[in-house]
Computed example of a mutant assay.
Amino acid sequence: MKTILLLAFCALAASAYALEESERVNGENGWYVPQQDGSFEWIDMDEAEEWLDNQEMLESRALSTSPVKFYLFTQSNPKKGQKITATSKSIASSNFNPAHPTRFVIHGWTQNYKAGMNKDICAAWLSQGDYNVIIVDWARARSVDYASSVVAVPKVGKKVASMVNFLVSNSGMSLNDLYVIGHSLGAHVAGYTGKNTNGQVHTIIGLDPALPLFNYNKPNKRLSSTDAWYVESIQTNGGGLGFLKPIGKGAFYPNGGKSQPGCPLDVTGACSHARSCTYYAEAVSQDNFGTMKCGDYEAAVAKECGSTYSSVRMGADTNAYMVEGDFYVPVNSKAPFGNIN
């Protein structure tokens, strides 16, 4: 099935050259879709969306083609996760403590729960106190075919939401201090999680939400600012692998949001794309990313937001209560990346 799906998409991409290269705008009238070898294939938006709609219908009829696993980390087990399931026995025998805030962390394409971003973000939160950090491992992300991973996103989000709903209903977890944090495709999984919980998630953090095959004008099919009480986006490879237009209620643009210092010859954008995770882990542990408030996202991209620091820091735990709008974030080329002590 995966082979057929991949071949169908490749055929679609190969036939989609109605637009001349000079007319193509990534994310506006089509997408440059990443391939396993690091190259990109262009596909026009109308053709891609028709294909995606058809695949989504097939996916929704499938019984279980998107396996999802959950690993719990706490201060009692900061290095080795406990695999948990949505059963009372599993949660009761784990280190899950409903009195502590919970953080779900969701990886992106080609990754798994052992990815460096998960370790860094988990360690950052546990350095701040008692938390339940639940790392989501979704197997479909490891498909060599990006498009098939995109197709799986809604169903994976619903499965994460089911775990959230179980923990709220059966284990006493509160939505009022729940964060769902996702990188790239995982950011959109976080969005679908928020769309499907029984009640409103407090905060979603989108770490450079993936752009290819996601339409800014269709917020019901991507991470949206309404998917939680507060949604923050940290956008580091905008217009490439990630969105350039603001996704969150609070949208942050490190170095203008397109590329990142210390990422030379970043032809595919992978280095800049990954920096969103590195910055966020540092922000949680050090709270050191000062920002300038911008009139709009274009000003943030152009780095034309003045030189006066605002009171807002990127990734701060208090942002949910005070932040709205677009922010430019100066960053360093190496750690520590934040510019405020």
Rank of each mutant, 00 (worst) to 15 (best):
214 F>A: 04
334 K>W: 14
246 P>C: 02
62 A>H: 12
89 K>F: 13
212 P>F: 06
207 L>R: 01
64 S>R: 13
339 N>R: 10
236 T>D: 09
219 P>C: 03
99 A>G: 11
253 Y>W: 07
200 Q>F: 06
77 N>W: 11
291 T>P: 03
239 G>M: 13
165 N>H: 05
203 T>W: 07
302 A>M: 03
187 A>S: 05
185 L>F: 12
243 F>K: 05
245 K>V: 09
162 S>C: 07
76 S>P: 14
117 M>A: 05
320 A>D: 04
222 R>E: 13
184 S>F: 01
330 P>S: 06
198 N>K: 10
297 Y>F: 14
2 K>N: 10
129 G>Y: 10
194 G>V: 01
144 V>N: 15
159 K>E: 12
258 K>V: 15
195 K>F: 07
131 Y>G: 08
3 T>F: 05
17 Y>S: 10
90 S>P: 01
283 A>K: 09
151 V>L: 10
307 S>H: 11
239 G>V: 14
82 Q>N: 04
326 D>I: 00
259 S>R: 12
199 G>S: 09
35 Q>S: 04
139 A>N: 07
147 A>N: 06
61 R>F: 13
137 D>F: 04
176 N>V: 09
118 N>F: 09
119 K>D: 11
318 T>L: 03
337 F>D: 08
254 P>W: 04
10 C>G: 09
181 I>N: 04
258 K>Q: 15
68 V>R: 01
63 L>P: 08
309 Y>C: 00
160 V>H: 01
85 T>F: 12
67 P>A: 04
186 G>S: 10
175 L>Q: 15
285 S>M: 05
114 K>P: 07
112 N>A: 09
237 N>T: 12
335 A>W: 15
101 P>N: 13
222 R>G: 13
168 V>D: 09
198 N>D: 08
258 K>I: 15
18 A>C: 15
19 L>Q: 14
330 P>I: 02
333 S>E: 10
265 L>D: 14
329 V>K: 01
201 V>Y: 12
297 Y>A: 03
105 V>Y: 08
76 S>A: 07
167 L>Y: 02
276 S>D: 01
71 Y>M: 14
222 R>A: 08
233 S>G: 02
43 I>Q: 07
155 K>A: 12
280 Y>V: 00
262 G>M: 10
77 N>E: 09
224 S>I: 00
22 S>F: 11
105 V>C: 00
314 M>K: 02
236 T>W: 14
217 N>G: 15
150 V>T: 12
183 H>T: 00
35 Q>R: 12
243 F>A: 04
280 Y>G: 00
312 V>P: 02
36 Q>K: 14
216 Y>F: 06
266 D>K: 07
249 K>G: 12
282 E>L: 04
287 D>E: 15
170 N>V: 08
86 A>G: 04
11 A>D: 06
174 S>K: 07
276 S>T: 06
155 K>N: 12
242 G>I: 11
251 A>F: 02
336 P>T: 14
252 F>E: 03
195 K>W: 11
118 N>L: 07
297 Y>Q: 11
67 P>V: 01
89 K>C: 08
69 K>T: 01
96 F>D: 02
89 K>P: 12
318 T>F: 05
271 C>V: 02
170 N>S: 13
4 I>P: 02
243 F>W: 13
120 D>Y: 07
4 I>L: 11
